[in-house]
Amino acid sequence: MPRDLVLTTTVNGEPVRKLIPANRSLLDFLREDLGLTGSKHGCDVGDCGACTVHLDGQPRLSCITLAAEAMDREVRTIEGVADGTLLHPVQEALHRHVGAQCGYCTPGIVMTLTALIDDAGDTPIDDDMLREALGANICRCTGYTKILAAAHDALRSGDSQSGKAAGEIG
């Protein structure tokens, strides 16, 4: 049997300390130990993007990441993206464009796009960069068209409003 370890980490700004099996995936830790079920099991082999979270601000596939890797680092999940009831511009745009159908891939798409925007800083993000980033997520419902439109819209609104800052809280 795998040995246990005490994981100390920060999830959505909250310090967490838990005894977990050393082989626990970050996804199972989030879903089962913390009850944060927004991140999804899509394929469990790191190919679909439905489990995407941020680890120290970078997108990570939590299904193929050991929870232990989050030791003393910052994890952000879909539950930590909105500022209370104020949606992040990416969430708001996906909502407005009906960029989610079944919604199962949507948390992962939000995490991919928010990481891209946070990471880009002042560098403008063009269509190629968006398509490149979204290549990490698969969606079976939408044909991606409205997701892409929403992403472009989020970039525009992020430029003109303080919405981008809202996403950094949480």
């Binding site: 944060l36 079920t37 927004g38 991140s39 999804k40 999940t77 879909i78 539950e79 993206v81 909105a82 949606l87 990416v90 969430q91 708001e92 996906l94 909502h95 407005r96 009906v98 989610a100 159908q101 919604g103 199962y104 949507t106 948390p107 939000v110």
Partner: peptide, 15 residues
């Protein structure tokens, strides 16, 4: 927008 849209984008929609 979709009835579940806010739940979808915040991860609150229950499956």
């Amino acid at each position: 927008p979709h009835d579940s849209a806010v739940g979808h984008v915040t991860g609150a929609a229950i499956y």
